[in-house]
Nucleic acid binder design. Sequence first.
DNA 1: AACCTTCCCTGATGGC
DNA 2: TGCCATCAGGGAAGGT
Length: 316
Amino acid sequence: MPELPEVETIRRGLSPRIRGTRILDVRTREARVFQLPTKHLRLKLRGRSIDEVNRIGKYLIFGLDHGYLVFHLGMTGQLTLRTPSGKDAPRFIRHPVTGLQRTRQHAPDQHTHLILQLDHGVELLYRDPRKFGKIFWLRSEPESLSRFFSKLGPDPFSGAYQEHEILKRMKGRKVSAKALLLDQSFVAGLGNIYADETLFVSRIHPLRRTDTLRKYERLRIFKMIPRVLAKGVHFGGTSLRDYIDSDGERGTHQERLFVYGRAGQPCVQCGYPITRIVVAQRGTHFCRVCQPRSKPVPGDLDWTIFDENNEPYPLP
DNA sequence: AACCTTCCCTGATGGC
DNA sequence: TGCCATCAGGGAAGGT
């Protein structure tokens, strides 16, 4: 599922290849995917130039010469580039062992809901089998963007991500730490995978109530969120099932996960088997030893989040 | 206001 | 082999 690191990887792949191009033609498929009538969208987009490709949380934002085109990829949304003269992969295949989906561009299929034909001969394809994703169009006025994102918390890589602000946002919350991290109005960009990873490196049990967290624990969450996400970006995102980048390539972060999807496997830190429970209707993975429920683990913990040279992964 | 539950949707998987 | 139930989950909407 595309969370912040996956969307950022897509953004980085798209930006140099579509910035400055013009949209020649627009084709749409399933109307439910769009937040406005497809006929209107086609009229809004045709002839527009793509000036910039930005991201806030899990949202991808194309800044056009008139208006904004905004994508939320939901769970299975994919944005890929295709050169019509190039060679397409025969179909979407998930390799039974490696999980490899494809390594080449693909032709549009029944799940491809938007095709933008760009003026340099490249097509941008939006594909979403489960249709949990959404595509929005916003007017050019700056306040249309701020209104659209008004309920969203700060992006961990933006200037709005400040210690004082984040710690304040935790005050008075009675939800579990896991539910807090999944709440996009608290911080934008974490999903189920990176929430579990953040709690692991912060040494906090997912069921701990936010209002029982010590100051040093809240501070650890604040510091670990950007690091966990930076690690995901560094490895091109996590490809467990459907996620692919703009070139159709899988990320490699799934090979480096500490807890997510590792139920029964040994903890990378202590060797005790990872536990899976359900919290806030989400599969939740943690280590009973490293993330104890009743006894907070004190200290400023920096372990396990460094690369092979013992350096933190660079922030975008 | 804060929190919780339900729903949307398709493909993969496992039991029989 | 086919059929059916179950599971995965981001976020909106509705309920408490």
